[in-house]
Computed example of a mutant assay.
Amino acid sequence: MKNEKKPNKELSIVVNGREKTVSGKTISSDELVELAFDNPPTGEFICFTITYRKGHGNKPDGNLAEGEMVKVKKGMIFNVTATDKS
């Protein structure tokens, strides 16, 4: 039997109270910002706070810093907040 890669299955997650469908085993902070906002706020002093819960067993909840990734699982809940750090 060949060692073929399985296509990434689609998972349903919740971002800022809205159900979203993603594929892949991980998701990045940038991808979450794109899912959370149709037009993400921009500016020199804008930063994003990302929290999650209902994640994998070893780390079911936590924070995601800019540039980080987290393993996704069906039903995971993400909250993405834009903050002006001025």
Rank of each mutant, 00 (worst) to 15 (best):
H56R: 11
I27K: 05
G43N: 07
K2I: 13
D61R: 15
E19A: 11
P7D: 11
E19S: 12
G24C: 04
L35S: 00
G75P: 11
N8C: 06
V80P: 03
G62Y: 03
E68L: 03
P40T: 05
N16I: 04
K25D: 07
R53H: 08
T26Y: 02
N39R: 07
A36D: 02
G67K: 08
K73G: 01
A65M: 10
D61N: 15
S29E: 05
N39H: 10
P41S: 14
N39F: 05
I77H: 09
F48M: 10
R18E: 14
D30L: 03
T21R: 12
A36F: 01
Y52M: 00
K25L: 11
F78D: 07
K54L: 10
S86A: 15
L32S: 00
I77L: 09
K20Q: 09
N63F: 03
G67F: 09
M69Q: 02
P7A: 14
R18Q: 12
D30N: 01
K73S: 06
K2S: 15
G57S: 15
K5E: 12
I50K: 02
S12V: 09
G67M: 10
T81G: 06
K6D: 10
K2N: 14
V22H: 04
A82I: 01
G43S: 09
V15L: 05
M69A: 04
E34M: 01
S28K: 06
N8S: 07
T51P: 00
T26G: 02
L32F: 02
T81I: 11
T26Q: 03
F37K: 01
T51A: 06
C47Q: 13
E19D: 11
A82V: 04
K20R: 10
V80N: 03
P40R: 08
G55F: 07
A36E: 00
A65G: 09
N79A: 11
I46L: 12
T42G: 12
L35P: 01
R53S: 08
I27Y: 01
G67A: 11
T21K: 14
H56Q: 11
P40F: 10
V70M: 09
K73I: 05
N16T: 06
L11G: 03
T42Q: 14
V70T: 14
G57N: 13
H56S: 08
K85N: 15
I13D: 07
A65E: 11
G75Q: 07
Y52H: 03
K73Q: 11
M69K: 07
E10H: 10
M69H: 03
D84A: 15
L32P: 00
A65L: 12
N8K: 08
K9N: 12
F45K: 12
C47H: 09
V72H: 01
D38Y: 07
G24F: 04
K9H: 09
G55Q: 07
K73A: 02
K6A: 14
R53V: 01
T26F: 02
I50D: 04
V15W: 06
E19H: 03
Y52L: 04
P40I: 08
N79I: 08
E31T: 04
E4K: 13
N63V: 06
M1H: 14
E44F: 11
T42E: 13
V80A: 03
L35T: 02
K2R: 15
S28C: 05
L11V: 04
V70S: 09
E66L: 11
